[in-house]
Computed example of a mutant assay.
Amino acid sequence: MKSVLLSTLYASVAASLLIAAPATAQDRNVDKRVDRLEQEMRAVQRKVFPGGSSRFFEPEITPEAETATTPSTTSSAVSDLIARVDALERSLATLTGQVEENGFRLQKIEDKLAAAEVPPVSTDPGSVSTAPSTDTGTSGTETAAEPDPERVTGVAAIVMPDTGDPGEDAYIYGYRLWDAKFYPEAQAQLKKAAAEHASHRRASFAKNLLGRAYLDDGKPALASVALYENYQELPRGERAPDSLYFLSTALVQLNKKPDACRVLTELQEVYPNVASGRLKARIDSGKAAADCS
């Protein structure tokens, strides 16, 4: 509708300029107004229709054909031109106001969207966000919830140790978060600890505990991935045998009991000393849960 209005206004001004009138002071004033309005209309058109051209917008109302003018009709023609220019000025003011109003509304919408996209502030810079995790292992977008003030306070109360061993401190901090049942925060911290201290002995501990944190958070699929990766990437790590046991637990929860039995068998074959020692009771309970023969 705006494009039709602009084209109609242009057509009216163009038709009016074809009128031959004496070069009086009134005419010169009208010419200046028309020139100014044409410039303003072009500016408005460029703002409303970027890259557009007036030739692409056909008017709904075709200007009436002007009859040949004579000196006797010059006065009425000038009066008609002035009336049209007045109408054009009013239309221009209205259109400009609409453009400014729409721009204001758009700015408010953009401000709201920008505010909604700002991530929650972590209580410990460089450590872990206090916002509830949206990592569910499924596709799709999720809206981040506002952090619970009590949860923020609880996470802030978990102290990052400072023993002079960054790898040890990073893992212990993740362990403390897990032990306090702040599972999403623990997951984020343990991922960070394993990534930033991959050559540290605690990397095996961090990856294994990451899998357990997923299990405790009701995410067996993510747990199975984390636990299997720890076994594959760090087979000589101190918690690689434990990862196989907890992997069997995740597979049982995923209703893959035959796979869980195969994992427990591999645990006994690859780590016989551990399987017959400190993990024996767990392996026995794991086989019972998986209905292993």
Rank of each mutant, 00 (worst) to 15 (best):
S199G: 14
Q253F: 02
G277C: 07
R202W: 07
A11S: 10
P184A: 07
L95C: 06
G140P: 10
L267F: 03
A21D: 00
A281K: 13
E185Y: 07
Y228A: 10
N230M: 01
S75A: 15
T249R: 13
Y245W: 04
R262M: 01
T134W: 12
K181N: 09
A114N: 14
E117G: 05
L177S: 01
V274W: 02
K47V: 11
G103I: 06
Q232G: 01
D35P: 01
V155D: 00
S122V: 00
R90T: 15
Q45D: 05
C261D: 03
W178N: 06
R201A: 06
D291P: 03
V155P: 00
T136P: 07
P258W: 08
P149S: 03
A281S: 13
P220S: 12
T123I: 09
E101A: 15
P235S: 09
A87S: 13
E185A: 06
K47G: 10
T153A: 15
S3G: 06
S276M: 01
E168S: 00
L81V: 15
S224C: 08
A195L: 06
L279A: 04
K257C: 03
T265W: 05
R105E: 13
K256L: 04
F56I: 03
G218S: 12
N29W: 10
Y10F: 14
D216L: 14
K181Q: 11
S91K: 11
L209R: 11
T94A: 13
R176Q: 13
G97D: 05
I109G: 09
T136F: 12
A275Y: 00
R239V: 00
R278F: 14
R262Q: 03
R239L: 02
R202I: 03
A260P: 03
P63E: 12
R282H: 07
Q232W: 02
Y271D: 02
D31E: 11
N102H: 15
L5V: 05
L210V: 05
D284T: 15
S243V: 08
K207D: 05
N273M: 09
E142Y: 04
D124H: 08
A290H: 06
S3M: 02
S75P: 10
N102K: 14
Q189A: 13
A186G: 07
A289F: 02
D162T: 09
R28K: 15
L17D: 14
E64R: 11
T62K: 15
A275W: 00
P22L: 10
L9K: 09
R28F: 13
Q268V: 05
G52S: 14
A288D: 04
A289C: 01
D27W: 06
Q187C: 02
E101M: 11
A198W: 06
N255G: 03
A226T: 04
A206N: 06
L9T: 07
A11Y: 04
T94P: 01
S243T: 07
D242G: 04
D169F: 05
L95K: 02
N255S: 12
